[in-house]
Design a protein around this nucleic acid. Structure first.
Lengths: 220, 220
DNA sequence: GTCTATAGAGCGATAGAC
DNA sequence: GTCTATCGCTCTATAGAC
């Protein structure tokens, strides 16, 4: 509509671009603040200020504090499980290299990406307390899980696992173990060494290959 | 000091007993309410009313909302891991009976004891956000973990596991897997069947026995 | 579109009656 | 020891200036 004035703005953004940038900055800040203070414990003012804006700007971009949180929950889940799948893909499962890489990933998530696990915990708590978003969270987790499942599936085939073993089941176990160990490391780092996750995966894959075929019936 | 009046109270409690009963009721209610609404999301009035008292009674028994929560965190952790250890103890690890029993326990915790997992999550989030209680939480988890470790230790010996395998490491893996699967079942029950936990444990123990001795150096 | 200022509601904690 | 009433504060969300 009206021509953009050539004010000395950083990169000459159109209005739409500027708004999108504000939204993105607010979402980044929200992820940090919600992770550190919790959804209910964090105030919208804290989130807005962490992004360099005021509460008015926040409410011009999101309907409510809850809407901002739900946007994070459903559209900004940078899932580290996908990275695990890639680590498993680049090396052979059960080898020392894959184990080492996965161990490093776990320690990295637990020690460096300090906001990841608490934010996931906030999502999980919100979802089980507000069942209407349970499906949203499940859907968001399905995609990286599928990636993990694919990698596991081919690995199982390659190492000649019994036919009855379901890749879904193994993927569920691997993901649950990963999350559980990350949390345990935050409580007591010495109990979760860098080698532990890789070691556990080796046990699991060796155990699968060595097992007989009594297929676990998957389903509830 | 003064003789107790024989008022027609339910069971004729001394003052001290009555106060202890009130405290216990408040703690029970706090566990429920904090699990369902979160520590910050729950109000002290909600907790007090859930116990059948007023906020005044609550503050006469606890210094603050936080003190009540910390009392729960440090002294009322009914840990289900201990039950897992007992289930593992009554049967031989790796057998179908032990697997079935552990599967049942996991489903029970996830589906029936609906307040357990969210309350643990609240404890974990509070601890990582308030590092001064990290040790308190770690200490509270150490006891049941030790029980699990003992059972695993004897099981490993009985089934002739390689010498380099540390029972602590296996116990950490088993506990992490348990918690991870319970949480996953709350999101998507169909992905965590009753058989899955037992199956995963079988894989792990078979895998340990079949593994060579490259001991994972435990320690950070 | 973003700011400042504020309305309106709910909360943690305390005081005083009993 | 427990209850009722309330203080003081913080919060979400909105209104109006720019």
């Amino acid at each position: 509509m009206d021509a953009e004035r050539d004010e000395p703005i950083r990169q000459r953004l159109t209005r739409g671009e500027a708004k999108a940038r504000t939204r993105a900055l607010l979402l980044d800040a929200a992820a940090r603040v919600f992770a550190r203070k919790g959804f209910t414990g964090a105030s919208v003012e804290e989130v807005a200020e962490a992004a360099g804006f005021s509460t008015g700007a926040l409410y011009s971009n999101f309907d409510s504090k809850e809407a901002l949180f739900l946007e994070l929950l459903s559209h900004r889940q940078t899932d580290r499980i996908t990275e695990a799948a890639q680590a498993l893909n680049s090396h052979e499962v059960g080898t020392g290299e894959a184990a080492a890489e996965l161990g490093r990933l776990l320690i990295d998530v637990a020690d460096k990406d300090i906001d990841f696990a608490p934010l996931q915990a906030e999502f999980w708590l919100y979802a089980i307390r507000n069942p209407e978003v349970l499906d949203t969270l499940a859907a968001k987790l399905r995609e990286p899980r599928r990636a993990l499942e694919d990698v596991i599936s081919t690995s199982l085939a390659r190492q000649g696992a019994p036919a009855g073993v379901s890749p879904e089941a193994v993927a569920t176990v691997v993901a649950a173990l990963f999350q559980g160990l990350v949390r345990q490391r935050r409580i007591d780092p010495s109990s979760v060494s860098e080698a532990l996750f890789g070691q556990a995966l080796k046990w699991i894959f060796v155990g699968i290959s060595a097992s007989d075929v009594p297929a676990p019936d998957d389903g509830d």
